[in-house]
Simulated scan of single mutants.
Amino acid sequence: MTDVGGDPPTATPVPLLNIANILTMSRLVLVPVFLAALFAADGHQTTWRLAAFAVFAVASFTDHVDGNLARKHGLITDFGKIADPIADKALTGAALVGLSLLGELPWWVTVVIAVREIGVTLLRFWVIRHGVIPASRGGKLKTLVQVFAIGLYVLPLPPLLVPVAEVLMGAAVILTVVTGVDYVVRAVRLRARGRRAVAGA
């Protein structure tokens, strides 16, 4: 019989410099570019607003593409796991703060969303030793609605369409709060299960 033993093949390490991570970093680079266009001419010049929207749209699209590429081609890295949510929150946070500084978005909206995002990040660290909570459908919907709502606020909309942006942002706030509460519940349950498993070991 032929000996087919020996050491098992080792997995090829994923290079840090891959297309998924490059797209993630490009999103971070686009944040100051977006802010520069948003604040140009006090943020009220149509051309600059369209430019800001274009940058925001491209950056938001990379958030969708880099994750799909990483999963499809096995390009998931520890760096990507950390950098991707940071880049996502940097873009959204910069847009919300910028719009509030321009007086076009109430500060309470920015604060509610920021507190939720920071809180969820802290919760991830709180339960990380017990496991990872996967993104829910509600969380994905929340992100999508936030992006569309922010995009409408960035665009130089005619007065007739302003209520549409306001309603969509209201929906984004509601989804932000509801999914945040859901994340807290799931985090507490995960931590409780982890502690019971340790106690019963």
Rank of each mutant, 00 (worst) to 15 (best):
T46W: 12
Q45R: 10
V145I: 15
A95Y: 08
V173L: 11
L190M: 09
G170M: 13
D3K: 06
Y153M: 15
V198H: 05
T62M: 01
A54V: 11
A201F: 10
K81Y: 10
G80A: 08
D42R: 04
P159K: 09
H64I: 12
V145E: 05
A114R: 00
T2R: 03
W108Q: 11
A57M: 04
L155F: 15
T121L: 05
L17I: 14
P156E: 11
G138Y: 11
L17N: 12
S136T: 15
F39D: 00
M1L: 13
D66H: 06
S26H: 02
S26E: 06
V111S: 03
V188F: 11
I118T: 10
D66K: 03
A172P: 09
N18Q: 09
Y153P: 14
L122T: 07
A149W: 05
H130I: 05
I82L: 15
V184F: 15
D63K: 05
G200Y: 02
A149N: 01
G43W: 06
R129F: 12
G194T: 02
L16C: 02
F34R: 01
P15F: 08
G119Y: 04
P32T: 02
I86T: 02
D84E: 01
L155I: 13
L99G: 02
A201I: 08
L190E: 07
W48S: 11
V177Q: 03
K89A: 01
M1S: 12
R195S: 07
P163R: 07
V97K: 00
P13N: 14
N18D: 09
T176S: 08
V33L: 13
P8H: 03
P158N: 08
R137M: 14
K142C: 08
P106R: 01
I86Y: 03
G80I: 04
R191L: 14
I113L: 12
F79H: 00
R196I: 13
V127R: 07
R189I: 15
A20L: 04
R129V: 14
G80D: 11
K142L: 06
F148H: 04
T92Y: 04
I150W: 11
L123Q: 02
G67L: 13
L144S: 14
R124C: 02
E117N: 10
V188I: 11
H64Y: 13
T77K: 04
I128E: 14
D63V: 13
P156D: 08
G151W: 07
A40K: 00
K89D: 01
